[in-house]
């Protein structure tokens, strides 16, 4: 019974979780692995889910923690920033769908990968997943004002990066 319910949960939410992770790590294989890990942890901890938020919000929090863990494991010492620009830029990791949709989308995708993690996260939640400011603030565990601020700054940075890319 629990198995069945869990499979349903996976069917229902795994795509969105995968997408969220994918845009944060920019690697299909890794995103797939981390998505699996999210659901594995969720299964193990299903009893501790208190119902204070929706199951989806809970799953996304697990996903977010895992992505942060992943970056933490990668960096050598604490003082080195979370994401290095050189790490991500591997065109082989770009999904075919992005290639198919044209140059503009590739530029946007690449520009997103150049953003710092906090900006990237807020853009994914607000613009790609379409969450409200309130929901985003809840997922990120910060104030709504900070979400607004980060969104504005993220878009500004994104535009700047895209312009630079176009000029190149």
């Amino acid at each position: 019974m629990r198995y069945k319910l869990f499979e349903q949960l996976y069917e229902q939410h795994s795509d969105t979780i995968y997408q969220y992770i994918f845009f944060l790590v920019n690697n299909k294989e890794l995103a797939e692995d981390l998505t699996q890990e999210v659901f594995f942890r969720a299964y193990k901890r299903l009893d501790t889910f208190a119902g204070q938020s929706t199951l989806y919000t809970w799953l996304r929090k697990i996903a977010r923690n895992l992505v942060y863990d992943h970056y933490r494991r990668k960096r050598m010492i604490q003082f080195v920033p979370f994401v290095s620009n050189d790490v991500w830029q591997d065109d082989q990791l770009l999904p075919n769908e992005i290639f198919e949709k044209g140059e503009e989308l590739i530029t946007l995708y690449k520009a997103i990968t150049h953003l710092k993690l906090a900006y990237r996260e807020v853009l994914i939640l607000r613009k790609i997943e379409g969450l409200s400011i309130k929901e985003t603030a809840m997922v990120l565990g910060c104030t709504e004002a900070k979400v607004k601020n980060n969104t504005t700054r993220a878009i500004q940075s994104l535009k700047k990066i895209m312009k630079e890319k176009e000029d190149e």
Binding site: Q19, Q36, E104, L123
Partner: peptide, 22 residues
């Protein structure tokens, strides 16, 4: 563009494999 990006689908074959592994 963001909307287009949000429409990118996950590989269904990979999804099935992943579920089985899970």
């Amino acid at each position: 563009l963001f909307h287009e990006l949000s429409l990118i689908k996950r590989d269904s074959k990979q999804k099935k494999e992943s579920l089985q592994l899970l």
